[in-house]
Write a protein that binds this DNA or RNA. Structure first.
Length: 470
DNA sequence: ATGTAC
């Protein structure tokens, strides 16, 4: 495999073997060197039937299930294009929601501990347990799977204005709850409105630096302002859907004459019963994840109103694990493509018709959750964005959970963060240790590379004031 | 990421 640098922050993997298109990695040399075991996966994805243009990787690329986390690939259904659950990931529609408070850091300081003590019991989290909303029966769960944040708002959990600031208006079309298996439904029923574990979190943050005041203002952000960032996904429901549909596709691949370099890249034509079934179930999980973030946002709003007298307005809600049917210009023609983004964020450019009117001039907000205890970023899509208007999604691991937990004790880590002025409410010491910042890449380097590669631009940097950890 | 392995 030959990897050559062919631009600033841009490397090219020449097609070889089963590759139908080249690979393109947007990264600095340093970031690339921390992810060399994922480059083979970028090359493998280039072998998917119907892939268009290139197999792309974002600056935070790292090893994933079959398809690298940080990977972007678009396929053309009219050219035998496939959809691969591995190209979306187990945590379907995992994503980030950012809310801006009407108070600044100085206003929050005297009541920070009250806010954190309010959030602690109000944000269900950790493996398995707890949920904000227990659906009363199949009808309510179906509403969530079909309507996402929109259904949650209809049921009184939020306001109409929230939906304007959600990707897809808060609900993905074409969800098919009938393709969500019984086991996925059972797992999902008890977890509506819960954070989960791992790198999922709810953080109280401060706007530490603004790089573009006009665009920040359009997003509703200004210096020193307090924000709340929520990072979570579709919990056991999305996980079970991925498992079920990978299995179903694996069994059918020989019949479609599809061969892939890695079994974990199981896939089916977009226009096939298996492809449509997965996309319908995936959309249902995407709506579940959005309702999940909507409900946790409401929980945070109640606490902020009570403990700080503050209001939280939605900045944006965007997923970083999803496949979407989108129209793109390729080789001078307009084509409808199935765009897989796994650990990659859609970043629509200024003027894009899918943006709400009040964000159209600024471009789409892109929300980058940093590693626990470090910075997070707000970015914006740029004109002439690359990789089907995509950019990075976060820091990306460099050390395994096991290695991270061996390096530091959770209590020590908490004490270190509290000494740095960050309030911490953890759900387990082991879980906290697994998320030690030194087990991750430097999110600032990732963002610099994304900007340098022409994928996005920086709008603001946020720093944590309080961490509620899954 | 995940009732951290059917």
């Amino acid at each position: 495999m030959t990897v050559v640098q062919d631009g600033p922050y841009r490397f090219r993997i020449e097609p070889s073997g089963a590759m139908r298109v080249p690979g393109v990695v947007f990264a600095s040399r340093e970031l690339l060197s921390t992810a060399d075991n994922a480059i083979g996966q970028v090359a493998n994805v280039a072998a998917l039937p119907g892939i268009v243009d290139a197999s792309y990787a974002m600056p935070d690329v790292h090893l994933g299930y079959g398809f690298a986390i940080g990977g972007v690939a678009a396929t053309d259904p009219r050219d035998g294009g496939v959809v691969s659950p591995g190209g979306v990931g187990f945590d379907i529609s995992c994503g980030v929601r950012l809310m801006a408070a009407d108070i600044d850091a100085a206003d929050l300081a005297p009541v920070l501990e009250d806010v954190m003590d309010g959030l602690d019991p109000a944000v269900p989290r950790g493996m398995g347990r707890g949920a904000v909303w227990r659906p009363s029966g199949r009808e309510e769960l179906t509403g969530i799977l079909t309507g996402g944040s929109r259904y949650a708002v209809q049921r009184g959990h939020g306001d109409e204005r929230d939906l304007l600031r959600c990707e897809d208006g808060g609900a993905v079309a074409d969800a098919d709850p009938g393709q969500v298996g019984e086991r996925a439904v059972e797992r999902g029923a008890g977890q509506v409105g819960s954070l989960g574990s791992g790198n999922h979190f709810l953080e109280v943050q401060r706007v530490a630096e603004v790089y573009d005041a006009d665009v920040a203002a359009a997003f509703g952000l200004s210096g020193d302002q307090i924000c709340v960032m929520i990072h979570c996904g579709s919990r056991g429901l999305g996980h079970q859907i991925c498992t079920d549909h990978v299995r179903a596709m694996e069994a059918r691949m020989p019949r479609y004459g599809i061969e892939v370099p890695d079994r974990q890249l199981a896939c089916a034509p977009v226009d096939s019963p298996e492809g449509r079934a997965y996309l319908g179930a995936m959309a249902a999980a995407a709506n579940y994840a959005r309702a999940n973030r909507q409900l946790l946002a409401q929980a945070a709003r109640r606490v902020f109103r009570r403990a700080a007298g503050a209001r939280l307005d939605l900045v944006y809600d965007v997923s970083h694990n999803l496949a979407k049917m989108e129209d793109h210009d390729v080789d001078g023609g307009r084509r409808r493509l199935c765009v897989h983004r796994k650990g990659a964020t859609r970043a629509l450019p200024p003027g894009h018709p899918d943006l709400p009117p009040d964000l159209r001039e600024a471009g789409q907000p892109v929300l980058i959750p940093g590693t626990m205890g470090t910075a997070s970023y707000v970015l914006a899509g740029v004109p002439d964005g690359r990789a089907f208007y995509s950019t990075c999604h976060g820091a990306g691991r460099t050390r395994s959970r096991h290695q991270a937990a061996r390096g530091v004790d959770g209590r020590t880590l908490r004490a270190r963060m509290e000494a740095d002025g960050i309030a911490v409410r953890a759900s387990s010491w082991r879980g906290l240790a697994e998320e030690a910042p030194d087990a991750y890449k430097d999110v600032s380097a990732v963002v610099e590379a994304g900007e340098g590669a022409g994928l996005c631009r920086k709008i603001a940097r946020l720093e944590p004031v309080g961490v509620v950890k899954g």
